[in-house]
Amino acid sequence: MRISTWLGGAALCAVAGSALAEAHMTDTSDARIALSNNYAGNSWRQAMLQSWEDVTGPAVEEGIVAAADAYTTSENQATEQAAQIQNMILQGYDAIVVNAASPTALNGAVKEACDAGIVVVSFDGIVTEPCAWRIAVDFHEMGRQEVEYLASRLPEGGNLLEIRGLAGVFVDDEISAGIHAGIEEFPQFEIAGSVHGDWAQDVAQKAVAGILPSLPEIVGVVTQGGDGYGAAEAIRAAGRDMPIIVLGNRQDEMLWWQQQRDESGYETISLSIAPGVSTLAFWVAQQILAGEEVPKDLTVPFLTVTQDTLDETLANTPEGSVANVEYSLEDAQAVIAEAQGEM
């Protein structure tokens, strides 16, 4: 009798245990999360840090986590960030969210953190160490979608001008590869010319002004962000018809788009990554700490501005900044669920 009661109790415990595991209800109110950032010197990074503060502040107040401290290294150097991560291990954080200075040079420090039982989530600047999670942007898909949009607007196709980013940087290669994949998919388009705009309006303007005289009629411009307004200025100065320029969510680009729309009904699309991806990384870290089974590689959706959302987005974007979106716990759960489906 006694033994059977004991066994029954044990069985009940086991059932309760498994139910708990399934619900992923581990409490994270004692958990402390740190943000390791290597650079704060441009508008994108500033917006990223601001988003982190705006989202993690209330999360701490509500007691979802105990702390969410942001650290930025004083110099943009991988060795310094490695030391910063090692310090975070000593400070006893439960999770480290990192935007890495180098995809590989932090691997030693990241491994130390993993070995100490710390959850490491990298985003934007991701790390290759297998024990860390990666929230990457699908730049390839971003390039492909640009061409896809143009195909929906211009079914008969035509010549395109491609503005690339900074030569030799991974992001530039990825977006450009995506654009070329899009061209293969929609062979009615042809890239008539390609220049490097270095993601800066002034550089793009000069480069486009230089190549324009040698080009046939252009129906569309595919860009990488930060270069659309410069291209528009160069084309206007040359007295050509304004092609469809795919924009990159910068405030000056969207302002120009709004003016053009009001004057002549200009239509286009704008896409880029939102700096608020830091908040997605925060929630992913929180979910991992809560016991959620999260795949190591996640893809972050990029932020698209369309004709319908232009006014609203522009109104919410500070002058000289980038359109932003902050992620909620539900958004993070949706991203995780999607990745789990692919597993």
Binding site: E75, A78, T79, A82, T104, A105, L106, N107
Partner: peptide, 16 residues
């Protein structure tokens, strides 16, 4: 020694 700690390298790794 640096590579032993970081497990990999880049051309700017030790500029400081």
């Amino acid at each position: 020694a640096l590579v032993g700690l970081t497990t990999s390298a880049d051309a700017n790794i030790a500029l400081r």
